[in-house]
């Protein structure tokens, strides 16, 4: 099955958690996540199971005015 991470189609294993996905795709650092437009707090990542076609938005702080 697959999901969409920042609009990119991304394969996942059935039952994969958000925590697992993030450790595969990101290099750590400050990060915030929304799934289907709902923010998922960091404490919930280990138990949050992704579903097929979920839209995951990953954002991070950058320079800006």
């Amino acid at each position: 099955m697959h999901i969409y991470v920042n609009d990119e189609e991304t394969p996942i294993e059935s039952g994969e958690t958000l925590d697992s996905l993030l450790s595969r795709l990101t290099s750590g650092g400050k990060l915030a996540v929304a799934v289907n437009d709902t923010v998922i707090r960091q404490a919930e990542w280990p138990d949050y199971q992704l579903q097929a076609d979920d839209r995951v938005l990953l954002i991070a702080p950058v320079q800006g005015g």
Partner: peptide
């Protein structure tokens, strides 16, 4: 000091801005 937010670019190593702004007394 302000910071912006941007979608994480997958498969790219990003230099984290926040680590450069850890100055005593400075809020983000």
């Amino acid at each position: 000091v302000t910071v912006a937010l941007r979608r994480v670019r997958l498969q790219e190593q990003e230099d984290e801005v926040v680590s450069h702004l850890q100055i005593p007394g400075v809020h983000l």
